[in-house]
């Protein structure tokens, strides 16, 4: 039997969609007395279950707003699910929205150290890796440049190389290749394949179907917070394309 590295069971998550979000104390006090319902409930995830095996690359596809990012945030502990459980074996590192929590006012080097420490390394361990991270990201010239002056591609390269150097057991990649150039994309996929061979797992979200089809072992099609299809990437993609086609007609 194959070992499971991420086990997700019956996760549900609701969000409040505020009509007028009360962001001040005054509005909250006022709203408390007016008793008007000022939000609607959005079911972002509805009873989602799946697992990712060791050494597997697992793709997630779906429209914008289908719950992909919410799911990834729950996997990385950033959100708490309303119900259900997530069990991750080993360390998990998310590369979400092109960053690893970089601070725009700090330099690339300082940010690598900060992220490394947040991800559980000692200052010394991470200092030894700075050069490798910078070299892999091909950002030698910009090591002491502040992140706010980086392009989105450069930020993504830095985030990806930091995550890879930290060497987690599970790596989450959310739309990371949308901004990288072709050379760097190839380098990333080579690294990911090597990563996979060493028995690590990757959860991969993309709107580009080609890498899902070519690299993923299995894929999941998420629709309106529900799992529509889990299985071979080609099946999931077919279901997704079919769904998009039906939506266009109606």
């Amino acid at each position: 039997m194959e070992e499971i590295s991420v086990d997700v069971k019956h996760i549900s998550k609701k969000f409040r969609l505020y009509h007028e979000k009360r962001t001040s104390v005054y509005e909250s006090v006022l709203g408390y007395f007016s008793r008007k319902k000022h939000y609607e409930v959005l079911q972002a995830l509805d009873d989602v279950s799946f697992d990712v095996k060791k050494g597997e690359m697992f793709g997630i596809i779906g429209k914008n707003g289908s719950g992909k990012t919410t799911l990834l945030r729950i996997l990385s502990h950033i959100y708490q699910p309303d119900s259900g459980s997530v069990d991750v074996k080993g360390t998990i590192i998310p590369v979400l929205a092109l960053g690893l929590g970089f601070h725009p006012e700090l330099t690339a080097t300082t940010n690598i150290v900060q992220s490394g420490i947040l991800l559980g390394f000692s200052r010394k361990q991470i200092s030894d890796k700075i050069n490798d991270v910078i070299r892999f990201a091909e950002l030698e010239k910009f090591a002491d440049t502040k992140i706010k002056n980086f392009s989105s591609g450069m930020q993504m390269r830095l985030a990806f190389s930091t995550a890879i150097q930290v060497d987690p057991d599970v790596l989450i990649l959310d739309e990371v290749f949308a901004v990288g150039d072709l050379n760097f994309q190839k380098k990333c996929f080579d690294t990911i394949m090597d990563f996979k061979k060493r028995g690590k797992s990757i959860i991969f979200v993309s709107h580009d179907m080609a890498p899902i089809r070519d690299f993923c072992d299995r894929a999941m099609f998420l629709n309106n917070g529900k799992v529509e299809t889990i299985g071979k990437p080609s099946d999931a993609i077919a279901a997704y394309v079919d769904f998009l086609g039906r939506q266009k007609q109606s």
Binding site: R73, L96, L100, G101, L118
Partner: peptide
């Protein structure tokens, strides 16, 4: 001030 940060990484 760390809004972007907190939504990307857990601590």
């Amino acid at each position: 001030n760390r809004a972007a940060f907190i939504s990307q990484i857990y601590f």
